[in-house]
Amino acid sequence: MSIGLLALQGDFREHRATLRRFGIEALEVRLPQQLAAVSHLIIPGGESTTIGRLLTRYALVEPLRARAGHDLAIWGTCAGAIILARELRDTKHGGQPTLGLMDITLRRNAFGSQLDSFEAPINAPVLGPTPLPGVFIRAPRFESLGPKVQALATLPDGEVVAARQGRLMATTFHPELTDDDRVHRYFLEL
């Protein structure tokens, strides 16, 4: 197993620090030949429009689509979840590039602006009975999950904040900004 961090833009360094805490050194992925060397890829939070455009510029779109869910497990956090989504509901950003890999519909910045960022406990039964700490920064919101998509985690009010479709996973929060590494460990098992 080899872990890659999409290192075009965003908080990939924070994911690397989390993985290092349990002894995994991740490869920074910026080009197709680097992508070819990994079995798992994390698409970090950041600015989704920029990440999407850089995926195109560095010829990563087609290699990602070809391998996604087959010999490549992919996890998108926040902006990374937007990149994985099949559909976006956001009238302000009609040109948002996505990979369209997961049968999910998201709304960008659905919880508000940077000033509306918040922390909340997250219920994730697949990770045990203890709630996860959730950090939400300009977070997207799941508006719908396709029939093959499984909800993995929710806020106390029942709102879905993590989902999985086979070897693809999306979280609208930032587990890499906490000391809890359960989501990272779960992803490595995909």
Results as ranks from 00 to 15, higher is better:
Gln33Tyr: 11
His70Pro: 01
Ala163Leu: 09
Ile51Asp: 08
Pro129Ile: 01
Gly45Val: 01
Pro125Ile: 11
Glu143Ile: 15
Phe142Ser: 07
Ile42Met: 07
Ile3Thr: 14
Glu143Met: 07
Ala110Arg: 08
Glu143Lys: 00
Arg67Ala: 05
Cys78Glu: 01
Glu87Tyr: 04
Pro63Trp: 10
Glu47Ile: 11
Gln165Glu: 14
Leu88Val: 05
Glu159Asp: 12
Glu62Leu: 10
Leu35Gln: 07
Arg138Leu: 02
Ile82Lys: 08
Thr49Glu: 05
Asn123His: 13
Gly94Asn: 11
Arg89Tyr: 12
Pro121Trp: 09
Thr77Asn: 03
Pro32Cys: 14
Leu88Ile: 15
Glu28Pro: 00
Leu5Arg: 02
Val160Asn: 08
Phe173Arg: 09
Arg185Trp: 09
Leu27Phe: 00
Cys78Phe: 00
Leu64Cys: 09
Gly146Cys: 12
Leu101Pro: 03
Pro140Lys: 05
Gln9Trp: 04
Leu5Met: 06
Arg67Trp: 08
Thr77Ile: 03
Val61Glu: 08
Arg57Met: 04
Leu127Asn: 09
Ala85Lys: 01
Asp157Ser: 09
Thr105Ser: 06
Asp11Leu: 00
Gly52Met: 09
Leu35Thr: 08
Thr154Asn: 06
Gly45Arg: 01
Thr171His: 06
Ile42Ala: 00
Tyr58Met: 08
Glu62Pro: 02
Ala37Thr: 10
Ala73Tyr: 13
His40Met: 13
Val126Tyr: 03
Val61His: 01
Leu168His: 06
Arg182Asp: 15
Ala17Lys: 13
Arg20Pro: 01
Gln150Ile: 12
Ser2Leu: 10
Ala73Pro: 07
Arg167Met: 09
Pro121Val: 08
Ala81Val: 08
Asp116Ala: 15
